[in-house]
Amino acid sequence: MAVENCCIAVFDQLPGARAAVQAFGGDDGGLSVVGCARMPGVGACCGGGGCLRFVGDGADCWHVLQARFPATALISMPPLGMVMAVGALAERFAQATRTVGGAGGGTLLGEALYRLSVPRESIARYEAALRAARCLVVIEGSEACVADAHDQMARGRATDLAIHLG
C-alpha cells in the first residue's frame, strides 16, 4: 500500500538540513532532501560514469548527503529551475522521467508531494521556499513514523515544520 503521510521541514540553509539529516535516527528509506540550483554557490554536473557531482560552495554538503542515500537526482522543473534531490524523492523523480505521461500540470515535485497528502496550497508554499533558495527535508512513512520524524526535526533549525496526513 502506498505511503500517504509525510513530515516536511524547511531549512534556510543546506548545512541546517544536513545536520538534521545526520542527526535523524529513523528509517532512511523514507527520507529525502530537496534543493534548488538557486541556492547560493551550488551547482551540479554529470561526472564520469554518469555520476552526479555537485560543484560550488555548497557542494560539500550535497556530497555528504549524496553519500548517505542510494539515489540522487538533478532535474529541470520549470518554473523552479534545476532541482536537486537525494533519497526517496530522487528515486521517484527518476522513475517519473522514465514513464510516459505528465505530472498533471504541476511540477514533478508538486505531484510527488501531493501523493504524500500535501495540500496544493502547501505545495505552492514549499515550491516558493525552494525558489527562495531554501531546502526541504521530507520524511515519508506511517503516521507514527512521521510524528516521530517531526519530533526529531523540531530539535533542529527548521524555519517551518509540518505533518501532512492522508
Binding site: 515544520l161 509540518a162 505533518i163 496526513l165 492522508g166
Partner: peptide, 10 residues
C-alpha cells in the same frame, strides 16, 4: 503545537 494538514475525506 505542531502544524498538521489532513486530506479531505479523512
Amino acid at each position: 503545537c505542531r502544524r498538521e494538514t489532513w486530506k479531505r475525506r479523512r
